[in-house]
Every structure is written in C-alpha cells, then in structure tokens.
Design a binder for these strands. Structure first.
Length: 877
RNA sequence: GCGAGAGUGGCGGAAUUGGCAGACGCACUGGAUUUAGGAUCCAGCGGGCAACCGUGGGGGUUCGAGUCCCCCCUCUCGCACCA
C-alpha cells in the first residue's frame, strides 16, 4: 500500500494545475486545490458554518477588517488584509469564542460617478455588479464571514439610518452650515475633490481651479477634540505610530489669547500665541488677508495696495498657499496697534502665511524669536527687539541671521527680566489674566469636519429650504430621502442632484409650501464612521442600531486595515462612536479595542525601453514578449495598475488555490510590514502544502493504526516538538500576529515528521504529530486542513476538534544543552541533566577539551550561569 | 523643517526578557531517483586557508549587545507656514 502510493505520487503528483495529467486513474491522492476548496466552501455555505448568533453563552469576539470599496475586482491588498483577519477569526472560533466576522461594501463614491460619465452605466448598476463580482472572489478565498450580515452603504436601508443620525446631530447642534471654500472649476462649473486638482488645474479640462465660497455642512468634531486626544492615551491595543499621528492631527496647543488695542480707536485685535513669553518682543502685527478687520484697518492711502494683495492671495488655491516654501509676502494696512506690555506702536500688516482657520487669524509678530516673522521683518525692514538671550554668546538684532526659538533668559521684558523663558510663560500668562489683557487658551489644529459633497453618488442630506420656514429637517417618518435614479451624469454644471427637479421639488414639512431639497450629499467617510456598529444588527428596521445587539458585540475586539487610514477614517469613526454614545445608540465611547495596521503589498517594477511598464505576464525569459528587448528591472513599489506591477488574485487562485494564496501572504512578512510579492515564494508555499498532503497520504495506514502517542525514546522527542509547536503557534497568533513565524514552526514540525525514522514502531506519536500539523494549519489554510482531517479518519470537523492545547509534561527534557563561553566567546556545548547543580555544570564544562584549551594557564575569576541555557567562564591572566 | 519607523546572508525574513546571530522559506551547489525533470528525496549553503571577522558607521554600558545609552549616515512613511 505504502509503496504503491509512492508510485502514484510520482506519476500523478506533478503539482502544476493546467499541465496535462497522464494517468488520471491514479489521481486519487493528488492535492487538487481547486476541487477540494470548492467542496469545502460549499459545505461551509450549506451548514452556515460562520453564522454569528447574538449572545450564545460563549465569550464574544468581534473581528473586523476594513470593508472594501467595490471597485470591481479584489487586489492583493485585500487578499492580504482578509487573510490576516481570517486567521484570527478562525483561531478565535476554534478557541471557543463566539466570533462576529462580517463583510460589506463601502459603496458610495466618485468612481461610480466617473464610470457613469465615461461609460454611461448607472452608478447603482455599476456598483451592485461590482459587488456581485467581488463577493464571489472573496468566497473563492474561503474567508469565514457571516454573509447573512452583509450590506452595502448605498442600500437605502443603510443610509436612511445615517440620515436619521444626522437629524439627531442637527438637534444637538453637532451638525451646522457655514460658508467654506471649495475647489471650483469655472469651465466645468463643478466642484472638484482635492484629488481631482492636479497642479492647481482641473483634472478633466485643465483650466485653473479657484477657491469658491459655498454654504456647506459641517460636523462639530472639534467639540470632541479634547476627548479624542485624551483617549489616545487609553488605547493600549493601538499601534503607537497611529496614536501619534492622531495626536499631531488634533494638534492641541496651550497658550494665551491676548488683545492688542488698535491705536486711535476702541477696537482690539485678538491673537492666539503659545509664546506669550515673547510679548515684549512683538514689534508688528500680522493678519490673515481674510481677517474681518483687514479692510477696516486699511487707510485710504494704502487701499489700492491692500486690495490688490487680498485679491492676489484669494486667487491662490489652498493647496498652493499652504505648501512648500511659499515666499513670505505682506502689505502694510496703514494702521497701528499697541503692544499691551511695552506700549509701543506696532504696524499692522496682512501676511499671506497667516491662516484665518487657525487661532484667531491674527499673529503677534516677534521677529527675533519666530523664523517666519524674522524673514518678514527683514523683507519689510521692520523693528526687532530681543527678549530671550540663550546662555553664552549674547545676540544683537544687527548680527542675527535667524530667529532664536530656543530657551534662554528673559531680557528687555520689564519685571520679567532674569527668569527663564519657560518660567516667564507661566508668569506672563498670569499677569495678562490679572490685568484683563488676555487669558490662557487652548487651541486645536483640528477643524470641524466638512461633510458636504456636491456629488450624486452619496447619501442625500435630509433637509429642505423653505422661503418662509428657512432650513427644515426632513421628518423621520419621511426617511429615507432616496437618491433618484433618473439623473443625468455629465460631469459638468455642478451637482447632478441640483439639476434634478424631480428630486429637488417637494413640500415644506412645516408649512406645506413648495420647497427645494438640499442637493449636497455626504462625504463617504460618514458611512464608514458607523458601519461597524450596524453589523451588530444589520437588519434592524425600526432604528439605526439595536441597542442590545450593539451592547453585546461592541466594541470591535480587533480591527484590521491599511495604515493609510491612520488619521481620517479612524478619527471620524472614533468621533462618531462618541456622538452615537451621547445619542444613546451605542454603549461604548471607543469603537476599536485593538487595531492592526498592515503594510502594503509591493512588487518589482519592470520596463521595456519600447513599451514602457510591463505586466509580469508580458515578460518571457527576461524579455518583452512583444518586441523581444531586454526588460529593465526597476525598484520595488506598491502594487499599482499604473506601474503594472500587479498580480491578479484570480489567476493566483486558479493556478495554486486559495490556500496557497493565503499562506504566502501570511508567510512572506509579518502583517505590519510591507510585503514583497515573489512568485517563487508562492511556489514554495504551494510545495509546502503538497509536502503536508503527502506526509498524511504516505502514512495513512500507519496513522490509522496509531492510538495514543507513545512516550519513550524517539517518540518522546517527536512529541516534545509537537507540543512545543502547539505552544509556539498559539503564542504567535494570539495577540502577536506573527503568522510568519507560526507557519515557520509548523514547517519545522513537518520536516521533523519527514525525518522521523521509526514511524512503524511509534504510530501513535506519528499520528499525533500529523493531526497537530493539520489542526495548527487550519486557521491559515482551512480547505486543505479540513480535507486532510477528514481523510485521517477523524470523526467530526476541525471546528469540533477545537484548538489544541499543549501538554506541559511533554515539554520537559531530562537533558539540557548548555552553551559554554570563555570570556563571552562560545567554546563548547555540553549536555547536562536538567536538574544539575551549578557545580556539576561548571565541572562538566571545564572537562570539555576545547573549553579547557582556552582556559589553560588562566585564572577563573567568575562564572555566570543562565540556568538551562548558558555558562560564561570569565578568566584572566 | 517637525514627528514616527526601519537598516541583519545573494533575496524575503527569524532571534518574544541583554544569553549559541542567520530559524523558516526562496535562490544557488552537489548527490539520489529518472526516458526526461521545471517534480520528489538526501546533503550543503554569511565571509575567511586559518586564527578569527561579521547585524548601516563610530563610541559607550555589561561577564555577555542585533537587542540598552550617546553621536553620525541612509531609506520609508506621515505632517508641513498651526502663531
């Protein structure tokens, strides 16, 4: 039987699907990934194997991967993301958790609209077809989702509840309208997203983009700024870099607001500063060109210069104005204000680098201690006054070549001279407050979240505008405000909804008069800010969320996705969770207990001198398949269609099967690092699965003979490695996510099985080893594992077997291998009984001939023993 | 410029607490089997003839450093006039 199997294998085991198989009748034991993967996927679907049931007595575990945008096809980034998630989901399930592992679609957004404009397909049709296609791709990967909870954010059943949440936010004052600038293409007469602006010009028609002020909707995320910041210090399960990025984004700074009286007037200019220690050095004032007092303070003789400056800055788009080393420019208004501490007159300038959105839009300029102010003062020949002197070389305004922004002693600062500037910060803040000249203040870099989009394919904002009642929210009973389907999409002439009379015209819910609907839709980040909670009760049809289900499942225990969402998505989701908590809809204030940010999938780029970037399949033996020229290999970069360094998951799965695709994306790198795709590495993983397959098949009859593992001699050694591997794999998966080392240790165990010499004598040990290999592999490569498990004659599924535990007793060793060092260099290795006393270890070590050679003629000074591992003999002389 | 992360064989990577550097895989080399090998199995595989030398470079702490401390270099990512 055994030898016959061997023959079959040689003739039929040629492991390249697609190559002709000569001897079909002997194919029984071949690893046919396609066939067995289809078989098990059907079994899982038929038995509803991954259904999550609320509150079934087991501890809950909510595992979520960031849901995809339905672009049409999955890419390797998805394969990686969902393979990682599926390992954890399956592992936790085997460990006995009640696992929620859902999937859905982030289905609103511009690509659907672009497809409509370019190909005349309706965004809904395009989106739902893409979803169908991607769903079947994901199913072919064997991912353990509860598909019964699937939804798309463009389903009216989803966005109606988003509209309701919006109404509640409106009531609480968390949603409001204000004027704000958008990118406007005057030729297309439409609003452009930041990514549609290329070099300050419209991506479609190339005309210059100008900012345009529109009334827009905002969410008051700034009201939660303090808590969003504070809670970053209470998220131990998040990667530190992500938390730091969020903190920087929120950008809390502590300082003062100070009023500067305008000379010969009763007006005041309020500034925000974090450097109140430098007030005595403030010699002029800089206002943002948009500052409300800018024109008011302009004297008649300065009017023309000021107007032309304001006009020039206004024409610069935001991207350009807030980028690079933009030349610092300004204009004098003709007015002066008074430094409240020195009483000096300070000229008031407008400056292009002062932003209206930050602080008060006015900056007290201290050229000696702020580099921007320094450059500005030099350019316009403005006065300077040093108020902080560092130790050592005292500076003068004449000799300064740049501002001194470091610490030092206060000078020229009245009563504060002689103290350190750090102390002066406190003292001057208190002083200003006492005198009523200013107050301590905290400022955030974070701005309110602008959610208006002048687009069609998004959630309609449920309000109407009535001539007599003003802005009126759509009543709850009239939700959802459904996107109309009969809308013309041309890409020109503003928002498509704004041109759809059918949609726009309705009656005022308050007075019945004809009114216009809001034509803006939400930023698609709004949908992804609460979808994770919706999965707890995806079919709830009376309210956004079923509080009981949410209380059971939330928070997400483990969230997994790309690092590119470190700030925006994750911050908005945290904000929404706090809002929903305040609205009584969810029970937590933070949505994600643990976060794993996975790296990108990268691949070598290749170029043909004639045909440019080449797909991997356009290359034959290092030459371009079209023209035969040598292919130039470029750097390794993130997979992207534009560089053609992509691998199609479908082809990969067709050729090797889902298990191999999953295994490679888990084995090639730890999840948080970038993964370099490499075809030969994939082959290696495929080879390994074949090796596992044969290890089971070639030993089937022995396995069936084995009962419980034998405990002596080689059996004991094999068993020790089996249980070590169980411990290693468990520890590597659980919390550590080091799937690559977990898989490596299983490979080692398989190698040990191959070199195990006494299979016939110890069938029980062999059987245990093979069974454990299969069980430990189950979260990574579920199809082949289920198949082998059933072949080995075990009753029940792997799910019923559960995750294995290791036997401490099996791990113990009678003998320890001790590394012997002399003066820190390895000179020998000895084997001693596990319970050997230090004296015995030392004697044994010094008896080792090589160790003795290095100790000859020397005096032993010290011996350091690390029990069970190492002995270092320190000698001298 | 600021903030974060990373530099280990030909390559991807391992070393969880300061204790045998290079696990595992790829590539490569040799052998076995074979009509054949792009399959499979076995063996080898950091450098050096050696003593020894080796974790980006230079110092330091320690019995012992890839790991801790200081300085420097390179790369990647994020933010970028934030007062």
């Amino acid at each position: 039987m055994d030898s016959l199997k061997g023959i079959h294998r040689q003739q039929a085991g040629f492991p390249f699907p697609g190559f002709p198989q000569v001897m079909e009748k002997f194919m029984l034991d071949r690893y046919d990934a396609m066939e067995l993967e289809g078989k098990w996927q059907k079994i899982w679907a038929d038995t509803d194997a991954f259904r999550a049931v609320d509150g079934d007595g087991k501890p809950k575990y909510y595992l979520l991967e960031m849901f995809p945008y339905p672009s049409g096809r999955i890419h390797m980034g998805h394969v990686r993301n969902y393979s990682i998630g599926d390992v954890v989901a399956r592992f936790k399930r085997l460990q006995g958790y009640n696992v929620l592992h859902p999937m859905g679609w982030d289905a609103f957004g511009m690509p659907a609209e672009n497809a409509a404009i370019q190909h005349g397909i309706h965004p809904a049709k395009w989106t739902y077809e893409n979803i169908d296609n991607m769903r079947s791709q994901l199913k072919r990967m064997g991912l353990s989702y509860d598909w019964k909870r699937e939804f798309a954010t463009c389903d009216p059943d989803y966005y109606r509840w988003e509209q309701l949440i919006f109404l509640r936010m409106l009531e609480k004052g968390l949603a409001y309208k204000k004027k704000s600038a958008v990118n406007w293409c005057p030729d297309c007469r439409t609003v452009l997203a930041n990514e549609q602006v290329e070099d300050g010009c419209c991506w479609r028609c190339g005309s210059e983009v100008a900012p345009k002020e529109l009334e827009q909707w905002f969410f008051k995320i700034t009201e939660y700024a303090e808590e969003l910041l504070e809670d970053t210090f209470h998220l131990p399960g998040w990667p530190e870099p992500v938390l730091i990025m969020q903190r920087n984004w929120i950008g809390r700074s502590v300082g003062c607001e100070i009023d500067f009286p305008v000379a010969d007037s009763d007006r005041k200019i309020r500034v925000f500063t974090t450097r109140q220690d430098t007030v005595y050095g403030a010699t002029f004032m800089s206002l943002a060109p948009e500052h409300p007092m800018a024109r008011e303070l302009t004297t008649e003789d300065r009017r023309r210069a000021v107007e032309s400056f304001i006009g020039r800055v206004a024409r610069q788009d935001r991207l350009r104005r807030t980028s690079e080393d933009q030349e610092k420019e300004g204009v004098f208004t003709g007015s002066f204000c008074i430094n409240p501490l020195t009483g000096d007159r300070m000229p008031v300038y407008l400056a292009n680098f002062v932003l209206m959105e930050y602080g008060t839009g006015a900056v007290m300029a201290v050229p000696t201690h702020d580099q921007r102010d320094f450059e500005f003062a030099r350019k316009y020949d403005l006065p300077m006054r040093i108020v902080i002197q560092p130790d050592g070389a005292p500076r003068t305004t004449e000799s300064m070549e740049e501002a001194w922004t470091g610490p030092g002693m206060m000078v020229n600062s009245g009563g504060f001279d002689g103290v350190s500037n750090e102390e002066a910060k406190e003292q001057i803040a208190d002083f200003l407050q006492e005198k009523g000249l200013g107050s301590k203040a905290i400022n955030f870099r974070l701005r309110d979240w602008g959610v208006s989009r002048q687009r069609y394919w998004g959630t309609p904002i449920p309000v109407v505008y009535c001539d007599s009642c003003g802005m009126v929210p759509v009543p709850e009973k009239d939700l959802p405000v459904v996107l109309p389907t009969n809308v013309e999409l041309t890409g020109e002439g503003g928002s498509p909804l704004a041109r759809s009379d059918d949609f726009l015209q309705t009656k005022c819910p308050r007075c019945g008069a004809p009114v216009r609907r809001e034509s803006d839709t939400f930023d698609t980040f709004v949908e992804s800010s609460w979808y994770f909670a919706r999965y707890a009760s995806p079919h709830e049809d009376a309210r956004p969320l079923d509080p009981e289900a949410v209380a059971y499942w939330m928070p997400v225990d483990q969230y997994i996705g790309g690092i590119e969402h470190a700030v925006m998505h994750l911050l908005y989701a945290r904000f929404f969770t706090k809002v929903l908590n305040d609205l009584g809809m969810v029970n937590v204030r933070e949505p994600f207990a643990n976060l794993l940010t996975q790296g990108m999938v990268c691949m070598e780029t290749r170029q043909c001198p004639e045909h440019g970037w080449l797909f991997p399949e356009d290359i034959e033996n290092g030459r371009c398949s079209v023209c035969g020229r040598d292919v130039k290999v470029g750097r390794i970069e993130k997979m992207s269609k534009s560089k053609k360094n992509v691998v199609d998951p479908d082809h990969l799965i067709e050729r090797y099967g889902a298990d191999t695709a999953r295994l490679f994306s888990l084995f090639a790198a730890p999840p948080e690092k970038d993964l370099e795709w490499n075809e030969q590495g994939v082959e290696g993983c495929f080879r390994f699965l074949n090796r596992v397959w044969r290890a089971v098949y070639d030993n089937l009859d022995i396995v069936q003979r084995g009962k419980s593992p034998e405990l002596e001699g080689p059996a004991r050694d094999l068993r020790r490695q089996v249980h070590r591997t169980i411990r290693k794999v468990t520890g590597d998966i659980d919390g550590r996510f080091h799937f690559n080392t977990a898989i490596a240790s299983i490979m080692e165990l398989v190698n040990a099985i191959y070199s195990f010499q006494e299979k016939d004598r110890y069938p029980g040990a062999l059987r245990e080893a093979l069974e454990m290999v299969v069980l430990l592999l189950a979260p990574f490569v579920p199809h082949i594992s289920e198949e082998l498990w059933s072949i080995m004659g075990r009753s029940g599924t792997i799910a019923e077997a559960g995750w294995p535990t290791w036997d401490e007793a099996a791990l113990t060793e009678e003998e320890n291998l001790i590394v012997v060092q002399v003066n820190g260099k390895v000179r020998g290795k000895i084997s001693v009984p596990a319970d050997a006393a230090e004296d015995l270890v030392r004697e044994t070590a010094m008896a080792d001939p090589n160790v003795a050679r290095f100790m000859e003629g020397k005096t032993l000074r010290k011996a350091i023993l690390v029990p069970g591992r190492l002995l270092n003999l320190v000698v001298s002389g």
